[in-house]
Design a protein around this nucleic acid. Sequence first.
DNA 1: AAGCGATGTCATCAACCGTTGACAAGAATA
DNA 2: TATTCTTGTCAACGGTTGATGACATCGCTT
Lengths: 171, 171
Amino acid sequence: MLRAACSAFDELGYDLATTREIGERAGVDPALIARYFDSKEGLFIASIAYVAEDEAEVDLETAVPYLLGRWDEHGHNPISRALASLGLSEEMRRRVAAVIAEWLQRQLGDELAARGVADAAMRAELIVAIAVGIAITRANGTLEALAAADREEVLAALAPAIECLLAPPGA
Amino acid sequence: MLRAACSAFDELGYDLATTREIGERAGVDPALIARYFDSKEGLFIASIAYVAEDEAEVDLETAVPYLLGRWDEHGHNPISRALASLGLSEEMRRRVAAVIAEWLQRQLGDELAARGVADAAMRAELIVAIAVGIAITRANGTLEALAAADREEVLAALAPAIECLLAPPGA
DNA sequence: AAGCGATGTCATCAACCGTTGACAAGAATA
DNA sequence: TATTCTTGTCAACGGTTGATGACATCGCTT
C-alpha cells in the first residue's frame, strides 16, 4: 500500500493522487488509508519516510546523476514531486525539508565544508533544486527536447556545470 | 482579471487556484470566468498568452537571472508553475510547450547554434529547467537555505556553472 | 421613451473530494 | 463453543469544485 501511494504521488502529485486512486492501485478500499495513516496527509508523510529510508551514499559530483536516476523514470518517489509542489501544508513542508536537510548534511555537508566553500548549504541545496527542475519538466513534457533526450545525454551536458558549481573560482 | 488570474495561478498553482479565489481577487463573480474564457482551463491558457506577450530579449548568460527575476518574487507569472505542474491537460501542455519553445528559439536558439553546440535545444531547455527548479523550491520553502538566500547570492553561485553548461569542453 | 445587447450577479447543479461509522468475515483466545 | 480483536468493505456524509442558466442592471440606439 505504501508502494501504491508512492507511485500515485509520484505520477500524479499530491492533489491529484486521490484516496480512491491510491486504494485502487493497492487493491484495497480507500477507507483503509484513514484507518492506518489517520489521513491522506499522514499517508503522504509515511511515504516520504518510507522512501527516505534507503538513500544511498553519494558524493557531490554524482549527486545529480543519483537523484535524477531515482526521480527520473521508475516513478516511485514522491519526494521530488513534494519539492515541486506549492500547496503543501506546513507539517508536510517541515517533514520534506527535514528529510532533505538530513540527507544533504549526512551525504554532502561535510564534503562541501571540507572544500572550504562558504555557502556550502546553499550550494548543496542548489544541486537538489536543479535535479528537481529537470525531473519535473521531463515528467510533464513541457520542455520537449529535454524530455525526449536520454538521461545520459542530459547528465553528460550537465556534468561540467555541476563541477563549476562545486568548485567556484575562489576555491 | 487576467492579472488576478496570473497572481493566483502563480501563488497557488493551477489546481489550488479556484475560480472563486480568482474571482475574489479580481473583485468579480466567478461565473465571469466561464463567460469570458469558456472555462478555467481557457483562462489559464489566456494567462499564459498574456504573460508571454512581453518577454524581454536576453542572451544566454543572462537567461537564468532573467527568468529567476521574473519568476522568483513578484509573483505574477503562471508559466513557471505550469512547467512544474503534473496534472496539465494535453491542451495546456501543448500551449505551455509552444510558448517556451518559441521564446527559446527566438531568444537563444540561434545564439546557441552559432556556438556550434550540437544539442543546442536540449541545453537551452536545460537552462529553463534549472530556473524552474530553483524558482519552485524557493517558493515553497522546502530547501531552506536556498529559500533564505538572496537572489544575488544564488545567481552568483550559479553563474560559472551556467557558463560551463554553455561552453562545454568540446566547443 | 421604448427596445436591446452587453455586462455582471445569484442560486443552483452534478461531480468529486477526504473522511466517517456501521457492519461483515475471520483469526485468536479462553 | 462463545467471546473478542483484527482486518477489510460498504454506503453515506459534509464540503468544495467548475460550470450553468435565469435574472437584474446599465448604456446605447432609434
